[in-house]
Design a binder for these strands. Structure first.
Lengths: 177, 177
DNA sequence: CGTAGTATTGAAACGGATCAATATCTGTGG
DNA sequence: CCACAGATATTGATCCGTTTCAATACTACG
């Protein structure tokens, strides 16, 4: 099992057709690598520089059996992750690209630990990764961000940093989760 | 916390816009109702007749702290559910309606406990619920099932029972998970 | 400074959404 | 047992947004 200490990773799946689908992005304090009876189902890859804790399974299991309070904390964490993932699933049922992108940015905002400036979101992943995660093409993502920029809802300070310009309008887009 | 003993339920969310989105369907042995600090985020509703186990939180917590082996089993269950949900997320990134429907049926097949006939899948939920779950309209679901029927991949014995006619073709549709 | 990867923008085609009409099923009461 | 009503499902025609294909711009790295 791994715990992200700092940095951002992507976790993806290689589909039979050869295409890749981003399953999730991993931020500090996130856990991954809890394999299905010894076999990993996803591949994890660093997007930024990353530091990890690695915890072998057997000692972890022993630790959990000894310290049931610790295990309970862990259980809560996994349960929380499950709820998050269910929410993300609902995001993906939204049809309009702009809405999905807005929600994605909102999700990023919640997880942005180092806020350089207020209302500034760091977007470490590529457009292509965003697209793969959101079930859109990278062109659509690009167009959606362009549209949001044009109507002065967001503004890119650089390609990997967004500022929320019109918070009210932004929230309205994000509303439906 | 609840455990489904028999029957099928749906778990959904009321969105701010008033629309409902099915978060997940619950089958025997599934768990739900693990609330976010005392507040439920989803609503669960029976689709068929259902029997449930209800386990109040405090006794459950005490039980987990006493019996760490039991808790570990439970942890594995939740972890498994998390992986499932991530897979389902990937399904939703598929663009074509027929593909989504095929995958949904495949998911149902895995969970169909009482197989009346071989290669027969019971589809207890309404088309509308399927649509809400898959992020499609019920019209699209209807058209997709019609298309799959027309090309002799599946066949409806009645509205809530499907038979896989051409397994090879079906599997090819389902492949990309 | 140049090149490969990454991102944006444009035009056309396709597929699902929407609106609307029709069909089928389910349960209820005569 | 049948007829009816309300919910559920299918089918059709049109519209709109995303995909696709293609060209161009930008950025980062050697």
């Amino acid at each position: 099992m791994f715990i992200v200490a700092s940095g951002v990773m992507k976790s993806f799946r290689e589909l039979p057709s050869g295409k890749r689908r981003i399953a999730t992005f991993l931020f500090p304090e996130d856990i991954f690598g809890l394999a299905e009876n010894g076999r990993y189902v996803n591949t994890a890859q660093a997007i930024t520089d990353v530091t990890l804790y690695r915890i072998p399974f057997d000692p972890l299991e022993r630790l959990f059996l000894e310290d049931s309070h610790l295990q309970l904390q862990f259980l809560c964490k996994v349960t929380h992750a499950l709820r998050q993932t269910q929410r993300q699933k609902i995001v993906l049922t939204r049809r309009d690209a702009a809405g999905r992108v807005a929600m994605f940015l909102s999700m990023l905002e919640r997880r942005t630990v180092d806020a350089p400036v207020l209302s500034t979101i760091s977007v470490p992943m590529s457009r292509s990764d965003m697209a793969s995660y959101l079930g859109l093409t990278l062109e659509s993502v690009s167009r959606a961000t362009a549209a949001l920029t044009r109507c002065r809802t967001i503004a890119f300070v650089d390609r990997h940093t967004v500022r929320i310009v019109d918070r009210a309008r932004f929230n309205k887009l994000v509303a439906d989760v």
